[in-house]
Design a protein around this nucleic acid. Structure first.
Ligand SMILES: [Mn+2]
Ligand SMILES: [Mn+2]
Ligand SMILES: [Zn+2]
Ligand SMILES: [Zn+2]
Lengths: 144, 144
DNA sequence: CGCCCAGGTGATACTAAGTATCAATTTAGC
DNA sequence: GCTAAATTGATACTTAGTATCACCTGGGCG
């Protein structure tokens, strides 16, 4: 049994494994890449039977809190989500051309940040970093 | 003449120095700290004569693009703005207790990020970083 | 198995942050 | 002052998310 499977994480945190939640997880598990709240709402509405908008947002919030999905902002500042592929502290490389999201497991901030903040007497609790640019595929397409 | 004064920056970029813009700049110049779009809209509506909502958003976008204001996300993921105090590349220390925003002029990402991204064949175009924690004042208040 | 109720659902309505349209107004240069 | 182009503000629309509340159901208990 994979204890990192969304269904098990839900249960482990005392949440119920309801039908709408299972169906949303199934939809997400096949999602190719970054998606907006609206896209998920649309997919949920098309399902049979349809899943309500409020439930989609509530479930999205729950999955976010459990680390099953992550919020990732686009280069254009748009909100978006991706299904998480790792549970530890990491950041994202977001392609500004195709929108693909890659995990960046090594945090380029940790060390340096502590010193800088300490000098300012600022007590760091957390940070968030997104890196924008072109993924390998889009760089190649660009060179042609 | 301070060429960094908002009025001059507008003109230098070929924009008109209209009355609503001047009045919005005046309102912003007295803004104590981080503000939301809604707060600015409200202040603009209370002004005499009132400034329209659409104009507030358009002007905010313009000032953002000219670097006169900066978008700063709160620890709770809320959108917000601050009047910029510097024009070069920098980040922000955002107090999760009082909401105050401090500039962090030394970018703790630059060096390390290049190497990491190069290994992944990701061509970096930019990044955005926000640091959350407690400002000096709130740390002290907390200790009591 | 079947009861029961806390937790969850979905319809609806509401808020915040924008964007789009367009007729009416204003700015800035001549 | 005149005029064209930029800007305004009213209105309507979109996306993201929250609040309410009557109804429903998952799953623990007997
Ligand atoms: Mn990730
Ligand atoms: Mn700043
Ligand atoms: Zn790409
Ligand atoms: Zn503070």
């Amino acid at each position: 049994m994979n204890s990192r499977a969304p269904e098990n994480v839900l249960i482990a945190h005392g949440h119920r494994l309801t039908e709408p939640r299972q169906r949303l997880i199934a939809i997400l598990s096949q999602w190719p890449s970054r998606f907006s709240a609206g896209e998920l709402v649309k997919a949920a509405r098309k399902a049979e039977p349809p899943i309500g908008r409020a439930t989609v947002f509530r479930t999205l919030g729950l999955l976010l809190e459990l680390g099953i999905v992550e919020r990732v902002r686009g280069a254009d500042d748009s909100e978006g989500y991706v299904v998480a592929r790792r549970g530890d502290h990491h950041h994202h490389l977001v392609c500004s051309s195709c929108g693909r999201v890659e995990d960046l497991p090594l945090c380029p901030v940790e060390g340096r940040l502590k010193e800088l903040a300490a000098e300012r007497r600022f007590q760091v609790q957390g940070h968030n970093l997104e890196v924008y640019g072109l993924c390998e595929g889009c760089v190649k397409a660009d060179e042609k």
